[in-house]
Design a protein around this nucleic acid. Structure first.
Length: 119
DNA sequence: ATGCTGACTATGT
DNA sequence: TACATAGCCAGCA
């Protein structure tokens, strides 16, 4: 049982995901799993990838701030400019990549107040 | 209905 | 650190 009897239309899931992604501040990143959890979809990280894939260009959703748990940009099927575009957009927000093309998640991961313990 | 695929992750080796 | 597995779930043949 997921959510203990709480009923929720699956179509609503994408919308929730977009809302969460839209909250990620500039210069910060979040992982697919993290977005899923914040959207009330714990354990359904793949769904986040699905939702972002369905996004259109002028959606205004900062999809480029979502990366995988290893701190890398996930590769899409086939080859496309999306991955390169994602890195360029992040670098423009001053997000740095190391030699292996990874981001220092410990340092740049977005920590919303709701999941932040007192300093 | 079944089976496969995919912008994923946690865990074990 | 890297690879293999199992779990995950929507969309499509």
């Amino acid at each position: 049982m997921r959510e203990a009897g709480v009923k929720k239309p699956n179509g609503d899931s994408y919308r929730r995901i977009y809302v969460v992604v839209s909250r990620i501040p500039r210069g910060r990143v979040a992982t697919y799993g993290q977005v899923a959890m914040l959207a009330g979809l714990h354990g359904r990280a793949r769904l986040v990838g699905y939702a972002l894939n369905a996004l259109s260009e002028g959606s205004g959703v900062p999809w480029h701030r979502v990366i995988n748990a290893r701190g890398e940009i996930s590769e899409r099927a086939g080859e496309g400019p999306a991955e390169v575009l994602q890195r360029l957009r992040l670098e423009r927000e001053r997000v740095r990549f190391d030699d292996r093309g990874r981001i220092a998640l410990d340092r740049l991961r977005w920590r919303p107040r709701s999941s932040r313990r007192k300093a």
